[in-house]
Design a protein around this nucleic acid. Structure first.
Length: 177
DNA sequence: AGATTGATCCAT
DNA sequence: TGGATCAATCTG
């Protein structure tokens, strides 16, 4: 049995998928080395009307991947400096994705989407690729059971421009003990 | 609080 | 084709 999450894991409701991603392993293989960590914080961007989502401006060269197949990576450069890693969710032609904002490794906790990409050596070359072993970046089942009471939710970060959409409680993170 | 940095998008 | 914007992070 493969521990790699299959496309169908991502093809359903984005909010429940976001919660289910907490506690899963993000894995990056570079040659014979592996970098991995538990996903601790995520943020959902859902549908064509979500003003906080890049997809709210419609299909463009950049956002096309959000309208595409679930289980593919959406990677973009923000502020000319930082990459952000998202996994596409829902059905084809319905734009949605989950931003990975935080990861915990054996030795350290990485908070912030730009830091996650830096730590995992992720750049735009992964954009639009399927999340699997072939490209060296995927998500695995960890076997860790996350309870609802271990999940916090809050407003999304950095989207104050998004009108009423800025108040959606679409950020989920693990309780820090 | 201010600087950084460049891809993206749309109209000024 | 120019310029404002931006799902962030760093230093102070």
């Amino acid at each position: 049995m493969s521990k790699v999450l299959a496309k169908k894991f991502y093809g359903q409701n984005t909010l429940s998928t976001a919660k289910k991603l907490l506690g899963k392993f993000l894995v990056r293989r570079i040659g014979r080395r592996k970098i991995s960590g538990t996903i601790t914080e995520v943020e959902a961007y859902i549908g064509p009307k979500d003003k906080a989502s890049h997809a709210s401006r419609g299909r463009t060269k950049r956002t096309e991947v959000m309208f595409g197949e679930s289980g593919h990576w959406y990677v973009y450069l923000i502020y000319g400096m930082h990459y952000c890693l998202n996994i596409v969710t829902e059905k084809k032609n319905y734009p949605a994705a989950i931003l990975i904002r935080g990861v915990k490794t054996k030795t350290k906790e990485i908070r912030g989407p730009g830091r996650v990409c830096k730590y995992f050596w992720i750049n735009k070359s992964f954009n639009a690729a399927a999340a699997d072993r072939k490209i060296g970046l995927w998500i695995e089942n960890s076997g860790v059971k996350i309870k609802n009471r271990d999940i916090q939710r809050g407003k999304r970060i950095g989207v104050d421009y998004a009108g009423k959409w800025k108040n959606k409680l679409w950020r989920f993170y693990l309780v820090r003990k």
